[in-house]
């Protein structure tokens, strides 16, 4: 694991209260799981940062080890991993996601 890339990842996660590591961009997701996660986030009505791991291969290679989470997408809120598509979708449907996102933005 490169130290530089680790530092970059840590900075991104610290600097952005909501950050999604995904395949493609919110406007043009390259994977169904990433697309569905973006839909949930957009529906929560807050701005969020994203990193396209397809155009950042070093982050793609390093983040799974750092996070101990093998798959993408990965959503971080207030510096903590919340989960991937299945978890985000379930939290959105149960009504947990929106208040979590909102309070993260307000606290930032």
């Amino acid at each position: 694991m490169s130290e530089d890339i680790l530092d970059t990842i840590k900075e991104q996660i610290e600097a952005n209260p909501i950050i999604l590591y995904m395949k493609g961009s919110p406007a043009a997701p390259q994977c169904g799981f990433s697309a569905q996660t973006v839909q949930c986030l957009v529906a929560c009505g807050q701005r969020f940062a994203y990193v396209d791991i397809l155009s950042n291969p070093e982050i793609r290679a390093t983040l799974p080890q750092y996070a101990n989470w093998p798959t993408f997408p990965q959503l971080y809120v207030s510096g903590e991993l919340v989960g991937g598509c299945d978890i985000i979708t379930e939290m959105f449907e149960s009504g947990e996601l929106e208040p979590l996102i909102k309070s993260a933005v307000e606290a930032a």
Binding site: Q30, C31, G32, T71, F72
Partner: peptide, 24 residues
Amino acid sequence: APLSPPCLGGKASEQPKTGDQEAR
């Protein structure tokens, strides 16, 4: 259980060791 989202056409075979909820 919920349905999985539809594929958006990415080619898994060209991305060994990487995945969608995909594994790396």
